[in-house]
């Protein structure tokens, strides 16, 4: 019975299937809304689903230069680690796997899809891949600092004098004291986190690693067929995971009492987060250059997060 329950968690809810579906939904909405913002009609909301199945049906070519094992494994490692992360993020009251994960674990698990993308791009042997992975890695270094600062601010706010890294405990704290986002000292951290999301997912203006127009999607340059489909799917899943993490950290105090309504409310906030920090930012900006991206995150976003951390330490 326990095994069946775990199987359900892992494969259906809130694991792989749920993440995939929500990811598709978010990606579809993102494309639709951005098109409306640009006065286009835009693709149907289900377009990412069609794209996925179209790509799966296409031929899969492995370049002669590639290290075949790493090349084939990378997309699946990315997919698997993303569906596992979802298990650890509490959906308001509901946590699939309790007491085994916390902020730092999540922080590290989230780097795994990035590493998988890098390994895949690197093992393809393509020069475009090489340029792409170098940019991906610099992007990772850029957003890591504000990300860490925002997480530590949340931990301090929820913990006071004791160490609280556990996401469930942070959720409980928010039930008692109101959502993080409603505490004024946490607003800069929330903003910093919102700015981290597009870089983590890799959308404009922070899509330097996959810049289609200059380096042919960088690490994905050589990918085709099913592995490409899985990598694209991972990007959509990342949207789901990041917005879910944001919701859990900053709006984790909402309880309706029923799992179904909890999940629907959770999804609504996720959609809102995606539309604000991915779609709107995408619609109004053009791609940055890699050195400007690094500067942006270390100079401005980090300062935002640092303000929050300092305020929390001063007792606000």
């Amino acid at each position: 019975m326990l095994i069946l329950r775990y199987l359900f968690y892992v494969l259906i809810f809130p694991g792989a299937l749920f993440t995939v579906l929500v990811g598709w939904l978010l990606a579809g909405l993102d494309r639709k809304v951005i098109a409306r913002m640009q006065r286009r009609i835009g693709p149907p909301v289900l377009q990412p689903v069609y794209d996925f199945f179209k790509l799966v049906g296409k031929e899969n070519i492995i370049p002669a230069q590639a290290n075949r094992t790493a090349y084939k494994m990378a997309p699946f490692i990315s997919f698997v680690s993303l569906s596992v992360i979802m298990l650890f993020i509490p959906i308001f009251g509901f946590t699939a796997v309790n007491g085994v994960a916390d902020l730092i674990v999540i922080l590290y698990l989230i780097t795994i899809p990035g590493v998988a993308l890098i390994v895949g791009g690197s093992s393809s042997g393509s020069p475009y891949g090489a340029v792409g992975i170098s940019r991906e890695m610099v992007t990772m270094m850029s957003y890591e600092l504000p990300f860490v600062l925002a997480l530590l601010a949340v931990a301090k706010k929820a913990g006071g004098d004791v160490l609280v890294f556990n996401l469930t405990d942070i959720g409980e704290w928010q039930v008692m004291n109101g959502c993080m986002a409603f505490h004024w000292s946490m607003i800069p951290a929330a903003l910093a986190f919102l700015l981290v999301i597009p870089a983590e997912v890799g959308t404009q203006p922070f899509d330097v690693a996959e810049a289609e127009t200059e380096i042919c999607e960088g690490p994905l340059c050589e990918y085709s067929g099913a592995p490409l489909a899985v990598f694209k799917l991972s990007t959509h899943m990342k949207m789901c995971v990041m917005s879910a993490l944001f919701t859990a950290l900053f709006f984790g105090g909402i309880r309706t009492g029923y799992v179904v309504t909890d999940v629907i409310l959770f999804l609504a906030i996720c959609v809102l987060v995606t539309l604000v920090c991915i779609t709107t930012v995408h619609a109004v900006t053009a791609r940055l250059r890699i050195q400007h991206l690094f500067k942006f995150y270390w100079k401005y976003v980090s300062v935002l997060a640092l303000i929050s951390l300092a305020l929390v330490w001063l007792g606000a």
């Binding site: 892992v10 799966v56 699946f76 997919f79 596992v84």
Partner: peptide
């Protein structure tokens, strides 16, 4: 817990690729 979860999902993913990999296209090696 994590490792068993990882293995389970990984097995599922491999299964999916095996099933799908048969029906779609060829894999060109060089």
């Amino acid at each position: 817990v994590w490792l068993s979860l990882f293995l389970m999902v990984f097995a599922a993913a491999v299964l999916v690729t095996l099933i799908m990999g048969r029906t779609t296209g060829r894999t060109l090696e060089s």
